[in-house]
Design a protein around this nucleic acid. Structure first.
Length: 291
DNA sequence: AGACCAACCTGCTGGC
DNA sequence: TGCCAGCAGGTTGGTC
């Protein structure tokens, strides 16, 4: 579910509560939600109890919380979170009843104020949490399991020139390319369809046939749609995406292509088409977006 | 090396 | 009413 804007909404919501807070209790109700955790480095719960959170970071769809105190050896450890398709992180007071798909729950004690419950809720268990160590990549420290992905287009480290050259050097379809997190991170199925619509590019267009101007335009539209969605609190279709307070985002009202099958293209009126491709739905205007 | 797809999960909807 | 196919916002590991 959650793409960059949704993850950023969650990160922004967690930041004031969790930075400076100490993890006082951790309960793992669903061990499969730890699939990203490398148990050879230590027990997930044991590595977290008593640790204090230093900051709230994100790259693409990964979010992590560096911890103070010595990590394993010379490493700085972080609590890493990926929401997968249906993950949420919710903040509640301690008297709240457990959520339907509660997988991991923390009691966090802020520097000042009452302890809170931080709940990792995930229907499909594609998301997960882990304790991982930070490694230096370019100008940032990121968890080792995040080192392979590219910067996202909203961070300063993103290199526009490198992106334009790299996508044009690939031999694949444009939509595939922008969903490739090692080329550009943070874009998922919704915002891929929206950015392609905005830049009038068919998702199956060959990347090697993209002109430099088209690649630049596509990148610009990716940034626009991600920023606009972020400003509107992300995209919610149902209860599967909520912010830390359990509230929906509003960007679903602004979608031009994704999920708009049969509705008129806002630009030319031609009905939006849905086509199954790479095992997921792709939505586009057959008139504005030619192969 | 790079491209591609199956697998990992649960739950809801729509057609018969 | 019941059953089943199809679909859902993502990443990974393996094969070619």
């Amino acid at each position: 579910m959650p793409e960059l804007p949704e993850v950023e909404v969650v990160r922004l919501g967690l930041e004031p509560a969790i930075v400076g807070a100490t993890l006082r209790d951790v309960r793992v109700l669903e061990p499969r939600s730890l699939k990203r955790h490398d148990a050879r480095r230590g027990d997930f719960v044991g590595m977290l109890i008593g640790r204090t959170v230093n900051s709230a970071q994100r790259r693409g769809k990964f979010m992590w919380f560096p911890l103070d105190g010595s990590g394993t050896g010379d490493h700085v450890d972080a609590l890493v979170t990926h929401l997968g398709m249906s993950g949420q992180v919710l903040l509640n007071t301690r008297d709240a009843s457990p959520e339907r798909h509660l997988r991991i729950q923390f009691v966090i004690e802020p520097g000042d104020g009452e302890p809170l419950l931080m709940s990792f809720v995930d229907q499909r268990i594609f998301g997960s949490m882990a304790v991982d160590y930070l490694v230096a990549v370019g100008d940032r420290w990121v968890p080792s399991q995040v080192a392979h992905i590219a910067p996202d287009p909203l961070e300063p480290a993103f290199d526009d020139e490198r992106f334009v050259a790299a996508i044009r050097a690939k031999h694949t379809g444009v939509k595939r390319a922008i969903l490739d997190q090692t080329l550009i991170s943070g874009v998922g199925n919704i915002y891929a369809d929206e950015a392609l619509w905005a830049s009038k590019i068919h998702g199956e267009r060959a990347t090697e046939r993209l002109t430099r101007a088209q690649a630049e335009s596509l990148l610009a539209e990716i940034r626009v749609v991600l920023q606009k969605a972020l400003a509107e609190g992300g995209t919610s279709f149902d209860e599967q995406y909520l912010n830390v307070n359990g509230e929906s985002g509003y960007f679903a009202h602004s979608l031009n292509a994704y999920g708009q099958t049969g509705r008129p293209c806002p630009r030319c009126g031609t009905p939006i088409v849905r086509k199954s491709f790479m095992n997921r739905g792709s939505h586009f205007c057959p008139r504005c977006q030619r192969r």
